[in-house]
Nucleic acid binder design. Structure first.
Lengths: 108, 108
DNA sequence: TTAGAGTGCAACCAGTTAGTTGCGTATCCT
DNA sequence: AGGATACGCAACTAACTGGTTGCACTCTAA
């Protein structure tokens, strides 16, 4: 039973500020920590920490260019996390439809 | 911009034990806290707390029957959370394909 | 060359969280 | 009735988390 890799992704998505950062990066191609911090009520360092967390989860990549570091979205892990949810939901659906069939009527 | 309701769902999914509980409930139709605790290296009370968290996130419903409480999966909120991820991923994809077109060649 | 902009690192703080133990209560079964 | 089973609540602990401030370093531009 390998520890599932989508844990960090869900942890990253659990924070509202981090979700905001992802949305901001989705529009913007690239952005720096100070740029993003201007749109949030927290300090630049807090944003930098969040970006590190997102990077650890694989949702973002950082590239240093001159004196600024550019962050870019990497939505790949989102797909993996969605796959997990879809799997659980599908198993439940299969089990549910079997139950409905067994009951012979709609259960909802 | 109302605070997004998928936050609690992602928080709930962030914990490996809670993900395990969801998977177990996906196979099993219903289960009790003590049943589920037998398959995890933590106490019954810890599992009960996790189930409360899942219930708060709307992923599980509890129904007391006699001396035991049965927990059942409610995968609805999963769909909402997936919708959020899909939206961010899609925005990024749109932005990326525009970028590729602007570059005139494959960017990956 | 020097001022300023942008970053990273470290220490620290307060609140949350995952886990435990202990205990009281309700229900089932003989 | 009375033991066993399943539960909920409360207190407590250790670790993690989101946030801050302070400071040193690097790059850019006048």
């Amino acid at each position: 039973m390998p520890d599932s890799p989508e844990g960090p992704v869900f942890s990253a998505l659990a924070d509202q500020n981090r979700r905001f950062l992802l949305e901001a990066l989705a529009d913007r191609e690239t952005a720096t920590a100070t740029e993003l911090a201007a749109e949030l009520p927290v300090t630049r360092q807090a944003v930098a920490k969040h970006l590190t967390a997102l990077s650890t989860a694989g949702l973002v990549t950082a590239r240093r260019q001159g004196r600024e570091t550019l962050y870019r979205l990497t939505p790949g892990p989102l797909t993996d996390a969605m796959a997990w949810m879809e799997r659980v939901g599908a198993e439940w659906d299969a089990r549910l439809s079997a139950f409905r069939e067994h009951m012979g009527r709609e259960a909802r």
